[in-house]
Amino acid sequence: QLNAMAHQIQEMFPQVPYHLVLQDLQLTRSVEITTDNILEGRIQVP
């Protein structure tokens, strides 16, 4: 299920590496919260 959620987020934010999306999802278990984390700059994109 997390993989499906990660792919959904990757479609919206292809610039964010998959492993970072998955790592955040493991903590949040939420597409909405992880999306917010990306938008708020809480996930550092190399």
Rank of each mutant, 00 (worst) to 15 (best):
P17C: 12
D24E: 03
T34Q: 00
D36C: 15
S30T: 04
N3P: 09
Q8E: 10
F13T: 01
L39K: 12
T35C: 11
T34C: 02
I38C: 03
F13E: 00
D24W: 05
D36G: 13
L20K: 06
Q1R: 12
Q23W: 08
Q26F: 12
N37K: 06
R42W: 05
E32R: 13
R42M: 06
V16L: 11
E11T: 12
T35A: 10
I33Q: 11
Q23N: 08
G41I: 04
A4H: 09
A6S: 04
I9Q: 01
I33M: 12
Q23E: 12
V31Q: 07
Q8S: 09
M12H: 08
Q10T: 11
S30K: 04
Q23G: 07
A4Y: 11
Q8M: 14
N37Q: 00
E40G: 11
L27Y: 09
M5W: 15
L20R: 05
H19Y: 14
D24G: 00
V16R: 00
N3L: 14
R42Y: 05
M5F: 08
L22G: 01
V16M: 09
G41Y: 04
N3R: 14
V21Y: 02
T34K: 01
I43T: 04
I9W: 02
R29P: 01
A4Q: 12
Q15S: 12
L22I: 10
I38S: 01
P46W: 06
Y18G: 14
L39C: 09
R29M: 13
Q1A: 12
A6F: 05
I33H: 09
A4N: 09
L2R: 03
N37R: 08
T34F: 01
T35K: 12
T28Q: 02
V16K: 00
M5N: 04
Q15D: 15
P46D: 11
Q8L: 12
L22H: 04
Q15K: 13
M5E: 06
L20Y: 06
D36M: 15
V45Q: 09
R42V: 05
L2A: 04
P46L: 09
Q26T: 11
F13C: 05
L22V: 08
V21F: 03
Q1I: 14
I9H: 01
I38V: 05
L25Q: 00
V16N: 03
M5I: 08
L39A: 07
E11Y: 09
T34Y: 01
P17I: 05
I43V: 09
Q26V: 11
S30M: 03
T28L: 01
L22D: 04
V31Y: 07
D36F: 12
L20S: 07
P46S: 11
R29W: 13
S30N: 08
T28R: 00
H7K: 15
E40T: 14
V45M: 10
Q26W: 12
P17S: 06
L2E: 04
Y18F: 14
R42L: 07
L22C: 08
L2K: 02
P46Y: 07
L22E: 06
Q10C: 15
V16S: 03
P46N: 11
Q15Y: 15
A6I: 09
D24F: 05
N37Y: 01
V31R: 07
L27S: 09
P46I: 11
R42T: 05
Q1K: 12
P14W: 04
R42K: 09
Q15T: 11
H7E: 10
Q23V: 08
T28W: 07
I38M: 04
Q8D: 06
L27G: 06
Q10D: 03
H7S: 11
E40D: 08
L25H: 00
G41R: 06
T34L: 02
E40W: 09
Q15W: 15
I43K: 02
V31L: 10
L22S: 02
M5P: 02
G41F: 05
V21A: 05
H7Y: 09
I33P: 00
V45A: 11
S30W: 02
I9L: 10
M5K: 06
Q15M: 11
H19V: 08
L20M: 09
P14L: 04
L20W: 07
E32Y: 08
R29F: 11
V31F: 09
Q26I: 14
L2S: 03
H19L: 09
R29Q: 12
R29L: 13
N37W: 03
L25K: 00
I33D: 08
D36E: 14
I9E: 00
T34H: 01
E32N: 08
L22T: 03
H7C: 13
L39N: 07
Q44D: 10
M5V: 06
V31N: 06
P17Q: 06
I38N: 01
D36Y: 09
Q26K: 10
D36N: 15
P14I: 02
L39T: 07
P46M: 10
D36I: 15
V21R: 00
Q44F: 13
N37V: 01
Q26N: 08
S30D: 07
S30A: 04
I33V: 12
I9P: 00
M12D: 05
L39M: 09
L27M: 12
L2P: 04
